[in-house]
């Protein structure tokens, strides 16, 4: 009895899933139907089922939780050419190419060392070592400018709109952590 019920359940779930995917009709790009290439102008182009898209941009569905899954390939007119379900389906050199493009679009230097955060009158002044070099920037308090985007990752947006990441708050030193925590 019990067994029958459980199989029924799982069947139902599977069915629901297909219902949804049927309705959504996502066009997945796979190594079989897709050819990515870097153009001379250092941009990405793609040929899908024989049709060439001279410039495309990669948009991550989950820029914070998983950059490598469900990547939407879009033209500059914001039309979706298709979705890459997972980067790992593609050969290594293509993955490297796509990775570079993703990093170009989602640019957020990683803060390797917080040197100082000084807070006054609704603004905090940050000084930090980042993967883009030694930087100073100003962040407006509130409005989600410093926010946790996963359980350990912190995203900081400065006044201009530049973004910075702290990959893992637990890796910060006690002193750094206290400074960052105050701005959260």
């Amino acid at each position: 009895m019990v067994k029958v019920e459980s199989t029924l359940c799982s069947q139902e779930i599977v069915e629901k899933k297909t219902d949804l995917s049927e309705a959504a009709r996502i066009h997945y790009l796979t190594p079989e139907n897709t050819e990515f290439a870097l153009t001379e102008g250092k941009l990405l182009s793609v040929r899908v089922d024989g049709e060439l898209y001279p410039v495309v941009y990669l948009h991550c569905s989950f820029p914070h939780s998983n950059k490598r899954m469900f990547i939407s390939v879009r033209t500059s007119e914001n039309q979706e050419v298709g979705m890459v379900k997972s980067l790992d389906e593609f050969p290594v050199d293509i993955v490297r190419l796509l990775d570079e493009q993703i990093h170009m679009r989602y640019f957020a230097p990683i803060i390797t060392k917080v040197i100082n955060i000084h807070e006054e009158f609704g603004y905090s002044y940050w000084e930090a070592e980042t993967t883009a070099g030694h930087l100073q920037f100003t962040v407006r308090r509130g409005g989600g400018n410093v926010k946790m985007v996963s359980s350990v990752k912190v995203l900081i947006t400065d006044l201009d709109g530049n973004r910075f990441l702290i990959e893992d708050v637990n890796q910060l030193s006690e002193k750094e952590y206290r400074m960052v925590e105050m701005s959260l």
């Binding site: 153009t39 102008g41 250092k42 989602y106 709109g161």
Partner: peptide
């Protein structure tokens, strides 16, 4: 783009990247 921007242009009928800048 997100957290940065690029200056593009069309050259020989294809798009090209010229420079990359911070926000």
């Amino acid at each position: 783009l997100i957290g940065n921007a690029i200056l593009e242009a069309t050259q020989d009928h294809t798009k090209r990247l010229i420079v990359r800048i911070s926000m």
